[in-house]
Amino acid sequence: MSATLRIVDVINTAASAKEILLDRARHFHRPPAVESWIVCSAGDHVDQIRRAGLPVAVIDTPRGLDPAALARATWRLARFFRRCKPDLVHTHSSIPGVVGRLAARAAAVPIVVHTVHGFHFHRGSRLPSRLLSWAAERSLARFTDMLLTQNQEDLRVVRRWRGVRARCIGNGIDAERYARAAHLHAGPGRVVACIARFEAVKNHHDLLHVFARVHAACPQARLRLVGDGLLRPACERLAADLGIAAATEFAGYREDVDALLADVDVAVLLSWKEGIPRGLLEPMAAAIPVVAWRVKGNREVIRPSQSGLLAAPGDLDETAAHIVRLLQDPALRARLGGAAAERVHRRFEETAVVARLRDAYGSLLREAGYVLPAHWHPHHVAQSHDQRTVLSA
């Protein structure tokens, strides 16, 4: 074993690497004892991650299921792993989880971990896609020393897979950063916001149809869409077709999301599935009431009528009614927003997630015969049977 413990995170985009991995990886990066690498596709945020002091390897992973592209990405990752010689590879999301785990095993990486950011076999996905996703995840679990889930529902799925080891580590944010954006608007609400990438699972299509209903009932309402992606042009055209283009702001990808929340009255997220969505945690931490669909991930974040409002997936009228109700009722916004902020501070702090991750890494490394560096002081986080288990049924 090398004197340097080397951890490599593999994720799809540079933007995701910056948003999801940067702060966590910095907790572990203590050279020369520990090096924490990030592997991601090329993008504007690569230099930003490097300036933060983390080593980055740029290896593009495909966005689709083209077999040739998947094979090339797997080969490139395996070649990098053989050269870098990581002790632990941690993959994130679906496609990086496929190519990253196969490449890690091909390169004889000692420990392989994968985080499930919400399984893709879910209500709203087509049956062939659902079956393919289930089969792929079930097969790849055999190449994984530990599966980490963000929510308890995904963990319960994995518990039915014989011989697979898993923990729920949750997801979190720097709640205090967003708490500084908290505000109270005494009058009728005006700004509705959604923080999400423009991709099919985030479902901006239905959101725009919902907002058309909201705007008809509350002409002062404005929709702010924070994020970018391949489906943005189609959504811009749909907003024009629905007659709400003048009331819809496409803000693009922004790093100052906390500042953009300063005048937001209601946040909304109509994803078909989630892990634990930052698109809800961030506005909730700013004491902004949220409306979301009753799907996995969202159900774990929101307590209905206590810290937000949930609507049945696909029910556009109920969703619009929830938003209109919040825009028209400042007292309800204040009550739900205050409870939402308290819930995020209590349950979804990033420091707790890092502590659980450190504990998971530590247990795997010790079992593999590694001596942990002197500075590696595990945070002893109480875990229930559902959060930490070797699965056998």
Rank of each mutant, 00 (worst) to 15 (best):
A42D: 14
H345V: 00
P31N: 06
A182V: 00
T74S: 12
A104N: 07
T149P: 06
A212W: 05
A106R: 15
R224N: 03
L70K: 03
R160Y: 01
R197Y: 10
R335G: 00
L147C: 08
E176M: 03
V10K: 14
A71H: 14
F81C: 12
L208N: 12
R51L: 11
R180G: 02
D145V: 05
V99P: 11
Q150P: 07
R162D: 14
D228Q: 05
S16T: 07
R356F: 02
H185R: 15
H114M: 12
E342W: 06
L238P: 00
A393E: 10
I111P: 02
S94M: 13
L132V: 15
L65A: 04
G338H: 12
H122Q: 11
V381H: 07
A259M: 12
R83L: 13
R325T: 10
L225W: 01
N203I: 05
P62W: 11
L260H: 09
T149D: 13
S384V: 08
R333D: 08
G308T: 11
L270Q: 09
E300N: 08
S305R: 12
C235W: 04
R180K: 13
R224L: 12
I302S: 07
A186R: 08
T115P: 09
C235V: 01
G64V: 07
A312T: 13
E153S: 10
P188W: 01
E153I: 03
H114E: 06
N171D: 08
A136G: 09
R224V: 09
Q152F: 10
L22H: 04
F28M: 09
V295D: 05
P110G: 10
A14H: 14
L22G: 01
R101D: 15
K18R: 14
H380F: 07
A286P: 02
R213K: 09
L365E: 10
L332G: 02
A14I: 11
M1V: 09
R138L: 04
A262E: 08
A193Y: 05
P96F: 15
R343W: 02
S363C: 03
L238C: 02
A262I: 00
H117V: 09
V191L: 11
A267Y: 03
S41V: 01
G100S: 15
Q383N: 08
V164E: 13
P219H: 01
I111C: 04
I11P: 04
S133I: 14
P313M: 07
L132T: 13
P219R: 05
L148A: 03
L310S: 11
R130W: 08
C218M: 09
A135T: 12
S363L: 13
E282K: 09
V112W: 12
R83P: 02
A193F: 04
A135E: 11
P283N: 09
D174F: 05
E300Y: 05
T115K: 06
E255L: 09
R24Y: 01
K273Q: 15
W37V: 07
V214T: 06
A106H: 15
A341D: 02
R162H: 14
A33I: 01
A247D: 12
G337V: 00
G118I: 10
I95H: 14
H45T: 00
